[in-house]
């Protein structure tokens, strides 16, 4: 979306098949360019720049910084705080709850596509209770719905015997038409609180096929996230039963409430957080590295929290803001 107008300026050159390895640093401690591996030739190529902006996708941004070791920055670039890779977050998910809702049986055929998730989105509704400390966990989640008269694939209406009592022939065929669309799926998407146990670091023993050391991940949800997932499952149950339906699947305590694995919801954020104090953050409030004034990060790595919403629009808004800051600083000849 933003690349075509940038290309139209004539000032953009895109290098494909370039696997960024590290940020190059000059004797003055400023970023001087990028070293990358050309995937086609497997040779190292260096590009020079007055300003370096990383947007490699949160974890890979942390990886590039940690791999950018030099005599000036032995622990990796922009890492004097030791926080590159730390406070990694993902969205908290509770997926796979399904209810059978007889009130949705035998509905007139209509197009359920085009508006996602059963025409319903349920935002977090307990802020006030949380403010009054009446909830066992701190942050919110929203509910996404699925099901309805969705596109049939192989496996559709499996287990129909449970709802129709079995049978075969014309009666079964009629029954299948009636229950098609009466199943509703529930998923929660919630906010994770960053913690000390969730981070990535360079794996000293493993490199990728380009010879670049890879990341090793450590991830742990706290009790806060587990209680949030539990609340979501109990809410799904309440909705299904309240609508006179039958709970088909809804993971309980024996499955730790079916809480997602770190990275599963593919909303990785954090790992090079911004902050007001250089001692406990990697970037300042303009996503500029404290240790290296011409280095900026414009992906999800600067995030200090991870709201229950999808992160892309926040990434774009922050990137826009950082871009304006860079332009301003260049004009003022500060960088």
């Amino acid at each position: 979306m933003l690349i075509p107008p940038a290309q139209a300026t004539g000032n953009l050159e895109i290098r494909c098949d370039a696997m960024a390895r590290e940020v190059l640093v000059g004797p003055d401690g400023l970023a001087s360019g990028i070293s990358y591996i050309d995937k086609k030739t497997r040779r190292e190529v260096q590009v020079r720049g007055k300003i370096v902006v990383l947007a490699a996708g949160c974890c890979d941004t942390a990886r590039i910084l940690l791999n950018s070791k030099s005599t000036l920055f032995p622990n990796g670039l922009a890492n004097s705080s030791g926080l590159v890779g730390r406070y990694l977050m993902d969205t908290v998910g509770a997926d796979g709850s399904v209810g059978f809702l007889p009130i949705l049986m035998d509905l007139p055929p209509h197009n359920c596509d085009g508006v996602g998730g059963m025409h319903v989105y349920m935002p977090w509704w307990n802020y006030q209770k949380q403010l009054r400390h009446q909830m066992p966990f701190a942050r919110g989640y929203h509910i996404e719905f699925g099901g309805g008269r969705r596109m049939p694939g192989p496996g559709i209406l499996s287990g129909s015997q449970h709802f129709l009592g079995g049978g075969y022939g014309a009666e079964l065929k009629r029954g299948c038409r009636k229950i098609f669309g009466a199943f509703v799926g529930f998923s929660s998407r919630g906010e994770m609180i960053p913690n000390d146990d969730s981070y990535c670091e360079i794996d000293k023993n493993v490199v990728d096929e380009w010879g670049i050391p890879v990341l090793k991940f450590h991830f742990k949800f706290s009790q806060d996230e587990v209680l949030q997932a539990r609340h979501a499952r109990e809410t799904f149950q309440e909705i299904i039963v309240g609508a006179g339906g039958e709970v088909i699947r809804n993971p309980g305590p024996e499955e730790n409430w079916g809480i997602s694995k770190g990275g599963e919801i593919i909303h990785e954020v954090g790992a090079a957080r911004m902050g007001a104090d250089r001692k406990n953050s990697v970037l300042n409030s303009n996503c500029q590295a404290w240790d290296c004034s011409n280095l900026f990060i414009t992906d999800a790595a600067p995030f200090v929290s991870n709201a229950d919403k999808n992160p892309t629009l926040s990434i774009m808004a922050l990137a826009w803001r950082t871009s304006e800051y860079i332009a301003d600083q260049v004009k003022k000849q500060n960088i």
Binding site: P109, R149, P154
Partner: peptide, 30 residues
């Protein structure tokens, strides 16, 4: 029989004929 019935029902209602039978009206621009 449950398993065979699931295969027959799933195979039928995901076929072109079965999709029209239900009918599934989606996958069109709204």
């Amino acid at each position: 029989f449950n398993h065979l019935s699931d295969l027959v029902v799933g195979g039928f209602f995901s076929s072109e004929m079965g999709v029209k039978d239900l009918p599934y009206l989606g996958n069109t621009m709204v």
